[in-house]
Amino acid sequence: MNSPNDVNSLEVSRLAYAYPDGTQALFGVDLTIGRGERVALLGPNGAGKTTLVMHLNGILTAGHGTVTVGGTPVRKDTLKEVRRRVGLVFQDPDDQLFMPTVRDDVAFGPANMGLTGEELERAVKGALDRVGMLEAIDRPPHHLSFGQRRRVAVATVLAMEPEILVLDEPSSNLDPAARRELAEILRSLDVTVLMVTHDLPYALELCERSLILSGGVIAADGPTRELLADTELLAAHRLELPYGFAVPAPAEPA
């Protein structure tokens, strides 16, 4: 293992992308995420958030610019390595959990990486333990509650020991308790996290730093607290805090 700061978990440089029908979605995105950081990627619907995420593990390949994960550039010949390092958690856990049991599902990634037998079992149990779902190991995913399914979805990528965990709208459709439980789990993980969301309080709760993606470029990059306090900046990018919500004063000096 390298020391925490000599390689960045994620570097995106001048990334541009147009869909095959000609619609340009990204117009030169630059961002860097250091090891161990938890960063929120904020933006209104249609800002290109999902398009950007699809580039991070090479499902879409850059029209222009580069993406580098833990020092490895995303290219055709590095796809296998990159997909191991970028853990993508999709918005709908029913898309993510496609195997008949929780155990098989969490084992899918590590087994594709070549783990077998005892080693595979250890990876599966370790990942489920980290999200507090070890007791559900032999249950079929459709017997779990929505919040439990989302936690198992996080475990499916944790089992691959990713360099960076990328979560697409992690708080969507969760009830308040499930939302808090997921936050506690995410905070307890010692991996780099990129959280794509327009749930601003959740970003404030979990991420020190935020990026605003708007119109296919990074429009702002800074401490979450400062960005959310800037009402004009938020309004310019179709973002706003929920009714009755004000950025609370910092609990401890930064």
């Binding site: 499902i59 997909r83 191991r84 970028v86 709908d92 496609f98 899918f108 087994a111 990486m113 990528v157």
Partner: peptide, 23 residues
């Protein structure tokens, strides 16, 4: 469309056309 999304999720976890032998 769900099938397409599931396929993406599989690719993201290293699927290369063969199911790993589990159990």
């Amino acid at each position: 469309e769900r099938g397409e999304r599931v396929h993406l999720a599989m690719l993201s976890r290293g699927y290369s056309g063969r199911m790993p032998m589990l159990g």
